[in-house]
């Protein structure tokens, strides 16, 4: 198996405010397998559940978020490990060492009144003993050097650094222990394009050097096109299509994916682009059957009643759409 296997995961937000009960079905039946040493991209709009998915993958499940069913199994080379069944201190042991997270606003992990190297030291000391200070500083300089960051950042305060540099420093911090899995949730969304390019190249560099698996979440298909090996498209709490980056970009089968990619403008092309009609569904009250059916131009009767299963149609190309499953069903 791969490094991570998710089986029919369901996680809902359940709130009860003065008797007003609400259940937001942020993740509703996700199954996915992620191989070692790949950059796995997850794309989707806001509130499609992708951030919730990342929370569950990193074991950060806190009320009102509740896992209703399913398993999240990691395999760090010594058998499979269900992260949802771990105790707090077991979780702390694997976090950063085996799984580390880079979030959109993760610049906040840098303590504003401590120099960068002190933050690094605190961080490392929380996980292992530092024998010699000199050795530690040299290791840190090596680590930054490998990532192409100037070593003077170690002596700087966070507010001295630009936003992009801060984000790259947090990436360096998150990869000190060479984690097997890096979860990056919108790591470049708040950044400028030039800085974004720098940050993404850094991520790719790390992946080449440390041979880890990166789960990259972003709504920006162009970012996925540049760095992801495989892409999963999420819509309203489910994965609707999953394939190699090339297949998603050029041979996508799900109408939502097709629309999404067709609507992207490009420099040098002024031809008319249209948005997907309708609005994203409310996850507190999602549509029946296929959740995309109210916006889909090829909707059929069955789409309104049944949930299309995610089936494999080609070379590790999976899609959840009756248009496709019908065809392949007929073919057999």
């Amino acid at each position: 198996m791969g490094i991570l296997k998710v089986e029919n995961l369901k996680a809902y937000y359940m709130t009860d405010v003065y008797g007003t009960k609400r259940t937001v079905r942020a993740i509703d039946g996700i199954s996915v397998e992620i191989k070692e040493n790949e950059i796995f991209g997850i794309a989707g709009e806001s509130s499609c559940g992708k951030t919730t998915f990342m929370k569950v993958l990193s074991g950060a499940v806190k009320p009102p978020l509740t896992v209703v069913g399913g398993k999240v199994l990691y395999n760090f080379g010594n058998g499979s490990l269900d992260i949802l069944s771990l105790q707090k201190d077991e979780l702390r042991k694997i976090r950063w060492k085996s799984i580390s997270c880079i979030l959109q606003g993760s610049m906040s992990v840098l303590n504003p009144v401590r120099k960068i190297y002190k933050t690094f030291r605190d961080f490392v000391e929380a996980h292992q003993k530092i024998e010699k200070k000199g050795d530690f500083m040299r290791q840190m300089r090596d680590h930054l050097g490998k990532l192409g960051l100037p070593r003077e950042v170690l002596k700087a305060y966070p507010h001295h650094l630009s936003g992009g540099m801060k984000q790259r420093v947090t990436i360096a911090l998150a990869t000190i222990f060479k984690p097997s899995v890096i979860i990056a949730d919108e790591p470049t969304t708040a950044l400028d394009v030039i800085v974004q390019r720098g940050v993404l190249q850094l991520l790719k560099e790390i992946q080449k050097e440390q041979k880890n698996t990166i789960i990259l979440v972003t709504h920006d298909m162009a970012v996925h096109a540049n760095i992801a090996d495989r892409i999963a498209i999420m819509y309203a709490g489910r994965i609707v299509e999953e394939a190699k980056a090339g297949d998603i970009l050029e041979n996508s089968l799900h109408p939502y994916t097709q629309h999404l990619i067709d609507s992207l403008p490009m420099i040098g092309d002024k031809s008319h682009r249209v948005s997907i009609p309708g609005v994203p569904p409310n996850l507190a009250n999602p549509p029946s059957g296929c959740r995309f059916h109210p916006r889909c131009s090829s909707v059929m009767g069955i789409c309104r009643e049944e949930v299309p299963p995610l089936i494999e149609v080609g070379d590790r190309h999976k899609v959840a759409c009756f248009l496709v499953s019908k065809e392949s069903g007929d073919g057999k």
Binding site: L200, A225, I261
Partner: peptide
């Protein structure tokens, strides 16, 4: 970044520190 294949960045970029 472009949402098409084969248009990946090649050279590294200089950023302001």
């Amino acid at each position: 970044p472009k949402p098409v294949l084969g248009e990946k960045w090649k050279d590294k970029i200089e950023l302001s520190t």
